[in-house]
């Protein structure tokens, strides 16, 4: 059904191993610990949500996994190979859409293929990716002409067009209004089910994690440590009023130190 399923290079889902990773920044000469001995493994095709309070180091962990920065301690492996530098097999969808404002929607989506010299062979994939996120009609628009939700969908298409084996998502729905968020979450779930990549989704929204992920990893306040893991086996689509859902929600909020109402 999905265009992604019938492509020349369907995503081969990749595993991710985060082994005893610690990280700190130096701010004005003082050491500022961000990650404290994080270990986490994702099997190919798995959907894991990382849940933690704001500023605990979730984005930092994703930047390390993307290869944009190197950990001070520990290693990160993709399919058994150490992650040294960014690679289009493993894509990061940033917290802000960060579209290139000088490129049309179509050319934003084309960026990855263009950078790797694959545009001639795979130009058709751009239209497929655009229709996947329902933005065919805006292919020639510039980013300033898009709403927040549309921009986030373009960012998603810009990643998906490269057939990543591992998709790292940094609160991609965080800034959207609740209706747009709901429909994008549903769309994204459909994409994951059909394309079969491994997904690591960072969020601070417990319900989002419960609706989408197969496993939820709860992180502590900065410096982030793994506090607990929850496995969710319920079938999709999941419902918020399901008793298991409500119970898990209460347990997770308890882990995060919040008394649920």
């Amino acid at each position: 059904m999905s265009a992604l399923a019938q492509t020349d290079g369907p995503a081969r889902a990749l595993s991710l191993d985060i082994r005893s990773v610690s990280h700190h920044y130096d701010i004005a000469g003082t050491r500022f610990d961000v990650l404290d001995d994080i270990s986490l493994s994702l099997t190919p095709g798995e959907f894991v949500a990382l849940l933690g309070p704001s500023g605990c180091g979730k984005s930092t962990l994703l930047r390390l996994a993307a290869g944009l920065e190197h950990p001070r301690q520990g290693t990160l492996l993709e399919d058994g190979n150490q992650i040294e530098a960014p690679d289009p097999s493993r894509l990061l969808v940033f917290q802000d859409p960060t579209l290139f404002p000088w490129r049309t929607v179509r050319r934003n989506v084309a960026t990855g293929l263009e950078a790797r010299g694959l545009l001639p062979q795979r130009a058709h994939r751009i239209d497929e990716a655009l229709s996947l996120v329902r933005l065919e009609d805006f292919a020639d628009a510039y980013p300033r002409q898009l709403s927040g939700g549309m921009a986030q969908r373009v960012a998603l298409a810009r990643a998906l067009v490269n057939d990543p084996g591992l998709l790292l998502l940094d609160e991609p729905f965080g800034k959207l209004d609740s209706l747009t968020r709901l429909s994008l979450q549903t769309e994204f779930l459909r994409l994951w089910q059909t394309a079969g990549f491994t997904a690591l989704l960072v969020t601070h929204d417990v319900e989002e994690a419960l609706l989408l992920a197969g496993r939820i990893v709860v992180l502590s306040d900065r410096p982030a440590r793994v506090l607990a893991e929850f496995r969710i086996t319920a079938d999709y689509p999941r419902h918020r009023d399901d008793p298991d859902f409500v119970r898990l929600r209460r347990d997770i909020l308890h882990e995060l130190g919040v008394q649920s109402v």
Partner: peptide, 9 residues
């Protein structure tokens, strides 16, 4: 950062 993750040299 975006361009590098997308494979830009």
């Amino acid at each position: 950062d975006v361009a590098r993750t997308l494979g830009a040299n």
